[in-house]
Design a protein around this nucleic acid. Structure first.
Length: 1171
RNA sequence: GGGCGAGUGGCGGAAUUGGUAUACGCGCCAGUCUUAGGAACUGGUCCCGUAAGGGUUAAGGGUUCGAGUCCCUUCUCGCCCACCA
């Protein structure tokens, strides 16, 4: 007999599946399944045993569904951008592309060596420009939709490596690579506005019934929706009361909105806390404001906080720190009280409004802070108890009472005083009512004395906080509503007096051990709270809902029920907040998708035109981060400096120019003077002034405001203008020439001066223009510009507007495109004044400068790259159409394949990859680019495989198991079977070589089973085969691979016992085994005479009739204990079963002399006699 | 601190979902074969007890005719989040 030798057969079948395209899928077929597994990162170390688990689970599932007759796609690719490749490049000076290629080849070999049935024709790679072209394209979609934006933000910064770190590279506040403490640094970043999709992402979870609850819950928690209220707290400025007067007409200018989920506790808000980064604080501490008495102290605290790392700031059990904002008070809108304001780093700037109302009595953090800063703590919610033994009755008198309870302790023998009531079944502490005007402490002391006679106490303290307790008091026929106060009194000495006869009639006293209070006192509904209070040194914090107290008209109401009313009462509004933050979408790294954006100093952010995609990563010599936090790409000038596509486009377009020069065609002295001086055709200022003065010596100067009649004015201005224009025109001839040189220009003139005197000289200069709007057109400047734009049929923001006055800029900046307002420095205002309103590159100093306006701007590429999550956020779409050059995936193909039916992956991706890709998909779906609303119908998480030492497999721990070695030793089929057998797919298991021999033995037995082929087989073999078909099918669908293997083992063991199996049965068994051990199954299949691959076969159906036997074994129990076993017909009636059970001799023995009180029959399972 | 999950032989684990606890495999013990070792095969293997029988699913309590499974309390471990108002 041939021996089972996997080495001889496995490679051969792997090649054959490749060459015959056994697992390549077409985009058509009646029934389809899309089975996906998270694609791997091809690391230099290769795939370890732990990585293989999801691929195997996917492979078994894919093979199963294929056999079930589904057109099953099981694709694979490479998530190959990322830090390890870049770090490797830095160390070894090897281009990441080179090492990545090598690593992919290795990983591919590894995956194939397991006998996986991936469809390699659909292989993708995120670093392939043909792939990341579409990643970039999707980014541009986000940009277009306004969901991608730039902002400066605090990022994680490693001071040693001088580089920004992604969140996932920060482990416990330390750099993953060098272990140094991570700092915060402000850097320009790209963000994706995932927060816009918070609600949709949360809602979408409802459409995913087949996702594990744990995964959905984690996502929901991550999104962190909470309903609360935003309430304004108005301020009262003490240091500078004038500020209060400067409030708006309604007196409501200075206020701070706070966010709270407990508006019901507002009456207990005794101070306000702002985060150190709060905008109000920033303003209050700047140079322009002077409202704080301790500005320097506050500034110092802010500085201090800024320098702190996250671990310092959030260190476990860290003492609260903060500083009061002196000189200003807030007004509690519920009580009208003035309360102090603080800044403290326990309030986060990024959540809610960055400010809180502090309620120390009902919030642990506020309590800690209040204790430290000695701030008032006011209880406003009382815990509520209703006695379940004697609950309040309807229609009875409501009798509120202030009630005190005294717990009198003798610490010498550790006992506590108990009141034993004579007329009622009560054992209580000292209990009684407080009288009018009496303090609570006095009341409790008095009650103790009256009821017990004891009078000397070494200490007395309040236990817990005030409570509300309700019960029906039968002896008074009323519903008691107690304002309950509990005190602990430590007895100083035994001295006591006789109690009155009246009291004696009611009760007697007893000393009971302190440790037994929980059982020896009855009935006290508030006992749990008392016990908890006794154990604590302080009153503590009650953070739940209850009955409101000290809350004005809301007192004695249920805090939950009046929440909304209180919000309304203080003029707040109900709001929803999310913990989800926008996604920091840039990395200062080389090995990632370049963000396809160009920064132009004229146009700002310009998306790279689609035709220019992909923006390919350039080759560089150095991959080291620059140290400034910029990507290494920033150093590649050739790549970074580009023509601005927007400016290039504009070159070809018609330019719409409007000139508005007071200095040229206007009528002011200054204009003239400036013009001369600035133009530089006078040798010096003195000369220019002298010339001008001389010129105007004999002429009146109308702008001095003398009165004149209109005819004189016209006459005067005509003469004035003629002269002036003549003079100035000489000076501006050159400028007009320059304007003439501009290609594709349409020109208009708006003049503050008169058409009468200006038009003629312009005509004379043969200056071509379409409009000339002087002061005869009685329109405002805005209107004039709008008229011109309308005539040119362009938007008014298309106009370039040239002016020489500051006022025009002010007037028109909201109408026009700011970037197209150009100042001319030789005119009225001059360079210095123009600089106050325009950036320097929008000011012309010389005529010739006008061409700079139309020159393309200086443009640089964005040098940040995308994070590793980018490529994986949409890869599942690309598999449906991996070669498409026109779009990322054809919609027909998407519709055929998507959504993904089964998605295998790790739990660690729940809140990152899984949420990110849902976000991308929802967005693309909204843009009409994707057909499926949710990408993954069923998520199948796996438990991680630990190393043999029970620790997570990692190179540094040295416990990595290399699958190559194990395969070489036992063969791929054995490893597959063993991995499946290890444990349930969802559970974490430790890899242990010890048991693998069992899997090998099992396969060897299957191999040897050929010897048992015969014409017939035992009936139990046939029956078991059908049971096994059913079981394995069910188990694969439930991912219980371990029990599937075990049931196949049982089948093989059974065949070995009878040593007979028909060829047909053996073949059926091979088909179900083939999903787990593909090579072996194929090999035997071939040896049995089959020409075609086993994977074109159909999964066998089981015969349900065979599964039901005629008789069933049942267990007979007496009082739940098994006493006998009986065999009855499958359809036996209850009566028959009971009779049979009673006839069992053993049962008879047990039942002798006993009476059967009850008989329970569960058909096919048990009979139970209760005696 | 919060959320989620788990705890069953020497080990990995099973239990038709409330109905014979410990399937299947590893390991171990005994035997067969063999010069020997290994492999293979046969039998045994939760604990106490010679046996009859009794006990046992982290510990304790509860519901039930019946609990590994449901409920409560406590302990231990794992994962995720963590000053989120």
């Amino acid at each position: 007999m041939k021996k089972y030798d996997p080495k001889k057969i496995e490679g051969r079948w792997q090649k054959k599946w490749q060459s015959e395209k056994t697992f390549v899928t077409k985009d058509s077929g009646a029934k389809e399944k899309y089975i996906l597994v998270e694609f791997p990162y091809p690391s230099g170390a290769g795939l370890h045993m732990g990585h293989m688990r999801p691929y195997m689970a996917g492979d078994i599932s894919a093979k199963y569904w294929r056999l079930k007759g589904y057109n099953t796609m099981y694709p694979i690719g490479w998530d190959a951008f990322g830090l390890p490749a870049e770090n490797y490049a830095i160390k070894n000076k090897v281009h990441p592309e080179v090492s990545t290629k090598k690593n992919i080849a290795n990983a591919k070999r590894q995956l194939a060596s397991w006998g996986t049935g991936f469809d390699w024709s659909r292989e993708i790679n995120t670093t392939d420009p043909d792939y990341y072209k579409w990643t970039q394209k999707i980014f541009l979609e986000f940009l277009k939709a306004g969901l991608a934006y730039e902002a400066t933000g605090l990022i994680n910064w490693c001071p040693k490596d001088k580089t920004g770190l992604a969140n996932e590279e920060v482990i416990d506040g330390k750099c993953e690579r060098c272990g140094s403490e991570v700092e915060k640094k402000e850097l320009r970043q790209w963000y994706l506005k995932i927060t816009d999709y918070a609600e949709k992402l949360l809602e979408g979870l409802k459409d995913l019934p087949e996702w594990p609850e744990a995964v959905k819950l984690q996502q929901a928690n991550w999104i962190g929706k909470s309903e609360g209220a935003e309430i304004d707290f108005y301020l009262n400025f003490k240091k500078d009361p004038k500020v209060n007067e400067n409030r708006g007409p309604d007196g409501k200018a200075a206020h701070i909105p706070v966010f709270t989920t407990r508006p019901d506790t507002i009456f207990g808000a005794t101070y306000l806390v702002l985060s150190p980064e709060h905008l109000w604080v920033t303003l209050a501490t700047d140079d322009k404001h002077d409202v704080l008495e301790n500005k320097e102290e506050v500034k110092k605290y802010i500085e201090n906080v800024k320098g702190k790392s996250d671990i310092e700031r959030t260190a476990l059990g860290k003492e609260k720190t903060g500083v009061e904002l002196k000189g200003v008070k807030a007004i509690n809108p519920a009580t009208g009280e003035e309360i102090p304001m603080f800044i403290a780093d326990y309030v986060l700037a990024g959540y809610g409004t960055g400010a809180i109302m502090a309620v120390p009595a009902h919030d642990e953090r506020d309590y800690d802070f209040a204790k430290k800063f000695d701030l008032p703590i006011r209880q406003v919610v009382a815990e509520h108890f209703v006695d379940i033994n004697t609950p309040p009755r309807e229609g009875k008198r409501h009798a509120p009472r202030v009630v005190v309870q005294g717990i009198v302790r003798n610490t010498k023998n550790n006992t506590v005083l108990q009141i034993v009531w004579k007329k009622f079944p009560w054992k209580t502490f000292v209990i009684g009512g407080a009288e009018d005007g009496e303090s609570l402490e006095d009341a409790v002391k008095r009650e103790v004395f009256e009821e017990t006679g004891y009078k000397n106490f070494s200490s007395i303290r309040k236990i817990g906080s005030e409570m509300r307790s309700e019960w029906y008091a039968e002896h008074k026929d009323e519903n008691r509503y107690a304002h309950m106060h509990v005190y602990e009194l430590i007895l100083e000495n035994d001295e006591h007096e006789e109690i009155s006869g009246k009291e004696k009639e009611k009760h007697e006293i007893a000393w009971v051990p302190f440790d037994s209070i929980s059982t020896s006192f009855k009935p006290v509904s508030e006992m749990p709270a008392i016990l908890a209070g006794l154990n604590k040194k302080e009153a503590g914090v009650f953070a739940e809902s209850g009955i409101l107290i000290n809350s004005g008209k809301f007192s004695e109401k249920n805090s939950e029920e009046v929440k909304k009313d209180i919000v309304e009462f203080v003029g707040g509004k109900i709001v929803t907040k999310y913990k989800l933050r926008d996604w920091v979408f840039s990395r200062q790294r080389y090995w990632g998708e370049p963000i396809p954006v160009i920064h132009c100093d004229k146009c700002g952010i310009v998306p790279v035109p689609e035709k220019d995609l992909p923006v390919k990563l350039p080759k560089v010599k150095n991959y080291e981060p620059t140290g400034t936090g910029e990507s290494p790409l920033a150093a590649i000038e050739k790549w970074v400096n580009v023509k601005c596509p927007s400016c290039e486009q504009k070159k070809k377009e018609t330019k719409y120019l409007v000139f508005d020069f007071d200095g040229v065609l206007g009528d002011t002295w200054e204009a003239h003077l400036h013009a001369r001086v600035n133009m530089g055709d006078s040798p010096d200022l003195k000369d220019a002034v002298a010339k001008a003065e001389k010129y105007f010596e004999t002429k009146p100067w109308h702008s001095r405001g003398e009165k004149y009649d209109e005819s004189i004015h016209i006459d005067w201005s005509t003469r004035f203008a003629k002269e002036l224009a003549k003079l100035e025109y000489d000076l501006f001839t050159d400028f007009l020439k320059e304007i003439g040189k501009i290609k594709n220009a349409k020109v208009a003139i708006v003049s503050a001066g008169s058409k009468i005197y200006s038009e003629a000289p312009i005509k004379k200069a043969k200056f071509k223009h379409t409009h000339f709007l002087g002061m005869e057109d009685h329109h405002s400047k805005e209107e004039k510009l709008e008229m011109i734009a309308e005539a040119w049929k362009v938007d008014v923001t298309e106009l370039y507007y040239f002016t020489d006055t500051k006022a025009d800029v002010y007037e028109l900046e909201n109408l026009l495109n700011r970037k197209k307002i150009i100042g001319c420095a030789w005119g009225y205002a001059g360079e210095e004044k123009l600089k106050q309103v325009l950036p320097e590159n929008q000011i012309l100093k010389k005529f010739k400068d006008i061409h700079k306006v139309f020159e393309p701007g200086k443009a640089k590429r964005e040098t940040n790259t995308m994070p590793q999550w980018a490529g994986s956020s949409w890869y599942w779409l690309r598999y449906t159409d991996p070669k498409n050059k026109k779009e990322f995936a054809d919609q027909k193909k998407q519709k055929y394949w998507t959504p993904v039916d089964l998605y295998f992956g790790g739990m660690e991706h729940t809140t990152l990859h899984l949420l990110y890709s849902r976000f991308w998909n929802l967005f693309l779906h909204d843009r009409g680019l994707v057909t499926a609303k949710e990408p993954y119908m069923k998520r199948v998480p796996h438990g991680i495989i630990l190393g043999p030492d029970g620790e997570k497999m990692s190179k540094s721990r040295g416990n990595v198991v290399n699958p190559d070695d194990i395969i070489a030793l036992y063969g791929a089929d054995t490893v597959r079977v063993y991995m499946a057998f290890l444990g349930p797919h969802g559970a974490q298991v430790a890899w242990n070589d010890k048991g693998i021999i069992g899997a090998r033995r099992f396969l060897e037995r299957v191999f040897a089973m050929k010897e048992f082929i015969s014409k017939n087989e035992d009936k139990n073999v046939t029956t078991l085969l059908h049971k096994t078909i059913k079981k394995v099918g069910e188990d694969v669908e439930a991912f219980s691979f371990n029990t599937a293997i075990s049931s196949m083992m049982i089948f093989v063991n059974t065949v070995f016992e009878s040593k007979k199996i028909t060829k047909k049965s053996f073949e059926i068994f091979l088909i179900i085994l083939s999903a787990f051990a593909p090579h072996l199954s194929e090999e035997i299949w071939k040896e049995l005479g089959h020409k075609k691959t086993i994977f074109t076969e159909k999964w066998p159906t089981f015969d349900p009739k065979l599964l039901v036997s005629d008789t069933v074994k049942m267990v007979v129990q007496i009082n739940g204990k098994v006493r006998a076993e009986i065999e009855v017909g499958a359809s036996a009636e209850e009566k028959e079963i009971v009779e049979k059970a009673l006839s069992e001799p053993k049962i008879g023995e047990y039942l002798e002399g006993k009476e059967i009180r009850k008989t329970i029959v569960v058909k096919g399972k048990i009979v139970n006699f209760v005696v």
